[in-house]
Amino acid sequence: MSTKRWAVTRYILMEQLQLLWRAYAIILIAFVVLPLLFAILTGNLGHYSFTSTLTDLGIGVAFGFFISITMSLTYDNFKLLIQNGISRKTYWQARVISLIGLSFGMEIIATLYNFLVTAPARGHSGQAFLGSTLYSLYDHFLGSNLFVNILGYMVFNWLFFIGLGLTGMAVGSIFSLLTKFTRNIALIAIPVLGFFLLVFLSNSSLNQHSYNLDGLVNFLKFLMGYHANAQPGYFNPTVPMLTMIIGCVIMGGIAYYFNQKLKLKK
């Protein structure tokens, strides 16, 4: 890897790690310390279980939010990097590399935490814990070896994080090109349009005669790894993985396209 790309990757990674520990510190305070204080103040210490609050912490979920938000922050670092003679292309590459690396590291940490802390604390076996996650749709497909299934679960989550991050990057890059005015309009318009789309979809699914959505539903099922007569747990995880990889390529491409258009604002 070129020295510049490595330098930028390292810079972005360090910055993300700094934000990450702060984010987790905030989560810890909000979900562990504050309830504890509240319990002490209200005299309900008996109802407060330190272990259960700690073990219920969704490290992975928190990271999903974290990565999609931080990857969307684009313009500040663009300014810093272009000031320092770093091209847009290198900026994009460095962000993608640090996203892949950070997601990998965090997925390992989250998995270790889930299976070594949360599951035992809840008295769950590893397989039972898998059954309580989104991966429960696929947790028997690869056979009964727990480690293989956990590996599948990890790859699945890793790809999911990368997809979230790249989506954040794409949205962030587009927003960095907008003026403040258009950005505010977009921030209002998108949720409103999304709401109407939802209303429209739910109406049309009630009204099955006018719109036949079976094809779409089947396609979505297929993307999720459903195949003929498959029971939940026996869905094919490689199909959604492939779906996510394709999604990542598309989102990464969008992010790249708009990233290349970044320029100094007036």
Partner: peptide
Amino acid sequence: DNDHTLGRLY
């Protein structure tokens, strides 16, 4: 979009 040349100016 060239690190090599951009890095030679400030």
